[in-house]
Amino acid sequence: MRYALRLVVSRLGLAVITLLAVSLVIFWTVELLPGDPATRILGQDATPERVKVLREELNLDEPALERYTDWLGGMIRGDWGDSIVAERPVTDYVLPRLENTLILAAYALALYIPLSLTLGIVTAVFRESRFTVWLSAAVLVGTAVPEFVVGILLLLTFAVTLPWFPPLADIDQAQSLPDLLHMLFLPAVTLTLAMTAYAVRMMQSSLVSVLESDYVRMATLKGLSRRRVILRHALPNALGPALRVTVLNIAWLIGGVVLVEVIFTFPGIGQLLIDSIRNLDTPVIEAIALIFAAVYILANLGADLVAAGLNPRLRARAR
């Protein structure tokens, strides 16, 4: 138990340090962009008076280190500053969008985990069968087709030709939970398909190599049921790579779903980031970048801990 605790604490500490480093990078990147931030933001409208006012608003005359600690302190306290363009708190902008994206991401993950796990196991266990060959081919095609093509195809098929699902994922219009799930089904499936393909490949190949290892053969020879061999002995050891992929997928879900957001007109955080970059709205960009980094680091942390939990050797030492 003490070992487990130490593991958790040390990983948590590392995560915090990484996050701090990332925050420094984000802050300095924005700082280091060419030109004075105030003139950059104002662009062609940069009259000396307006630059002066904005410089004061952004506290640009204070030393950079002080501004960094102010900003970071604010982020921790929940005071994320004001959007320059809209002149209102950044939290007003980012949190509702983050909430929407998290809902969609959770939905996609809820479809993705059982789907990729099942497909991975099926394709590995029945790797000789014809069906599996076709399935693997389909998965390969799935890996190759970008998600915006999948999205458009799903949209045209299941929203236009067969009117089963609404083409707009207008989350504000949802009246109930079933309504919400129905509305978000197509974007969630698009995301799921994009993620599943790769994860199934990883799952399959690692499970195959485990299934062909000596200790699995040993377990089989000892007369354990096939089911027990696969689920209890082989699967936990094969999950590691699939978990890594899942972590990458989670990070992608939070940040990289812009194209899917556009196709289904979903008010997520990706579109907000693009809009903010176009408007050079630095406080919003900084906040979103930090959120992405935090999600990524947290997902990694979670994967590490789960992997440790699954690993029999680590479990044994923990006992």
Binding site: L156, A159, V160, P163, P167, L168, I263, F264, T265
Partner: peptide, 19 residues
């Protein structure tokens, strides 16, 4: 007043009566 910048989605939304 909503924004649907993706043309295919705009047409789909109209055909389905969402707008």
């Amino acid at each position: 007043l909503v924004s649907i910048s993706e043309p295919a989605a705009r047409v789909a939304a109209l055909k389905r009566g969402q707008v």
